[in-house]
Every structure is written in C-alpha cells, then in structure tokens.
Computed example of a mutant assay.
Amino acid sequence: MIKRDNFRFYNSESKEHQLMKKYVYDTFIASNLYKNVALEYDLGERIADVYLKLIDGKEVVVECQHSFITPEEIKGRTKFYNKLNMYVLWILNGKSFKKNPRNQEKIVFYTHEKTLFYLYRERVYYLNVSKDGIEGSIYPLYFTPYFEMNFNNFTCKKRYFKGMRSTIVGEIPNYELVFYENGYKITRFKDKNLKFSCSKEMMQFLLDYHHQYNSTSKKKRSRSRLKRIPLKDIIQTFKGRYGIYLPYQILNNRTVPIDDIKYCKDANGFYREYILFDKKVLKKHSFD
C-alpha cells in the first residue's frame, strides 16, 4: 500500500474537522483494503479531505463535513469529483447535528441530511467528534417518519409528526465499499439494509409464533388457513431494534406477505387490530 500523508492545518479550519479527516484517513489505512490512501489530496480547484484508490483503479473522495452545508453545495462538490471520474462518500459530524449512534425518536431532519439520505439509499453516515477527540467510530443512521401508535382497549391511534424523524442505527461490518450511480457516482459502506433485515426477522417471528401456537394451544384448532396475532405484540417485539414506523410500514405494505390487518374480537370481547397470516404463503416467500 502506498501511503501519502500531507496533513496540513489551516487557520480557518476547526479542530473537529481536522480530527475527522485524520481519523478517516487512519481508518482506511488500517483496513489494508486500498492501494493508495491520501490525506488532503490536491485536485486543483479543490483539496479532497481523504482520497482512496482501489486495486481495480476506482478512485474515491471522502468528504468529512463538520458544519452546516446546503444541498446545493453537496450536489456541486459531488458533481465536481464525478467529472474527474471519482466516486464520493460523505461523512457528517454527528455532534454538529445532534445525532448519536443509537435509535432516537422525534429528532430534527436537516435539509442537507435529507439530500444525503436520498443519495445513499435511506441512510446517512456519521462520526461523532468534539474538540476533545473522536467518540466511537463511523456509523450509519436510517431515517423514518416519526410515528406514534397508542394502543387501548378499543383501537390503535396512529399519528405522524410532520418534519420530525426517528433514527435507527446500523452497523458497518468492515471498510469495504459498494459503488453505484444514481445520477451521481456514489460509494457507501457494506452495511445491511435494515428494511431487508427487519422483514426477514419478522417473517421468522410469525412462523415461530404459528409453530408455538399449534404446540401449546389446548383449544380446538380452527379450520381456517389463517392465523392471527395482535399487531401490538409484533410492534412491541421489534420496536427496540427497528423503531415503530419501519415494522408497521413493512406489514402495511405487505413486504412480509401477510393476508390482512383488521379489527377482531379478543378473548375479552374487545376489538383489537390483528395481523392475519398464512404459514404456507410465508414459507414460500424468500428474502435471500
């Protein structure tokens, strides 16, 4: 591996930005996945924060963003690097925008974060940095609408909060990159798609529930091909890992092939929302 370290401090540059660049540079050096890793790579009109060159010849610029930036600036810089046939990876300072590597509810979703959310297929990458140093490592956040579900004996009240979001933290398994083009040349880490993971886990949960019901129920089994489970039980099971909105969206959009969501009487005579599903249909469906 060729290492180029031309680290320079500028009077106008914040300490947080300096620390971000150095951390990202050191991280990619330590990964031993790249032919060339350079810090503050001079491209004439711009100096890239971190530059990577892969063995197959692909070139990457990593932009470390500590302060607020407009969507137009993000698109402009990305286009500049793309014209040089370079892919771009953006990493924001989570501290600057009140983001943390954990699931959070009812948070502000800034316009530049929204721009990156669409560029990076429903995720944004962060590194939390203060003047005292680096806190943790790079992490992805997935954004969903902030959504409340209040269950009572008669109904489930659903409410969306305009302009607010919930975040679900993902995990970066290593520092390999994935490349794609969506009007821009973009690269991202190989973190898992959380919608895929949640759907797969939810389908297995329903199959296990069906098996457990058949094994423990002393009641006469219904001839119906459909089994039912309270919507509340599924949401409570998955909200700790995936929040409230994503599991509900997966069920409501039939990403997991359920039959229906409808109100049914429970054992106490109250109407509750239930998920109706067919084991045979679930077993035929595959997320692999």
Rank of each mutant, 00 (worst) to 15 (best):
Ser137Gly: 04
Lys131His: 12
Thr111Leu: 13
Leu127Phe: 01
Tyr139Met: 02
Cys156Tyr: 01
Phe151Gln: 11
Tyr126Gln: 04
Leu127Cys: 01
Phe109His: 10
Tyr126Phe: 08
Val124Met: 00
Ser130His: 01
Tyr146Gln: 00
Tyr110Leu: 14
Lys114Ala: 14
Tyr118Leu: 11
Thr111Asp: 15
Tyr139Pro: 00
Lys157Pro: 07
Pro145Thr: 09
Phe151Asp: 12
Glu135Trp: 06
Glu113Ser: 03
Tyr142Cys: 06
Asn150Tyr: 14
Ile134Trp: 12
Pro145Ile: 11
Tyr120Leu: 05
Thr144Ser: 05
Pro145Ala: 08
Leu127Gln: 00
Phe109Arg: 11
Tyr126Pro: 02
Lys158Leu: 08
Tyr120Gly: 04
Thr144Asn: 07
Lys131Asn: 15
Lys131Met: 09
Ile138Leu: 07
Lys157Asn: 12
Phe154Ser: 15
Tyr120Ser: 01
Val129Glu: 07
Thr115Cys: 15
Asn152Arg: 13
Ile138Gly: 03
Thr155Cys: 09
Phe151Ala: 09
Phe154Thr: 13
Phe143Ile: 08
Thr111Val: 11
Lys158Cys: 07
Lys131Gln: 11
Lys157Leu: 13
His112Cys: 14
Glu148Val: 13
Asn153Gln: 13
Thr144Glu: 05
Lys114Pro: 02
Tyr120Arg: 01
Tyr142Asn: 06
Glu113Arg: 03
Asp132Cys: 04
Lys157Trp: 10
Leu119Val: 00
Gly136His: 05
Phe151Asn: 11
Ile134His: 11
Leu119Tyr: 11
Gly136Lys: 08
Ser130Asn: 08
Phe151Ser: 12
Ser137His: 06
Ile138Thr: 02
Val129Lys: 00
Ser130Phe: 06
Ser137Tyr: 01
Pro145Trp: 06
Phe147Met: 04
Tyr142Gln: 06
Lys114His: 12
Ile134Asn: 09
Phe154Lys: 13
Glu148Tyr: 03
Ser137Ile: 04
Tyr146Asp: 07
Pro145Asn: 10
Lys114Trp: 11
Phe143Trp: 06
Asn150Val: 12
Glu135Gln: 05
Asn152Pro: 10
Lys157Thr: 12
Lys131Tyr: 10
Thr115Trp: 08
Phe147Ser: 06
Arg123Trp: 06
Tyr118Cys: 07
Leu116Gly: 05
Lys131Glu: 14
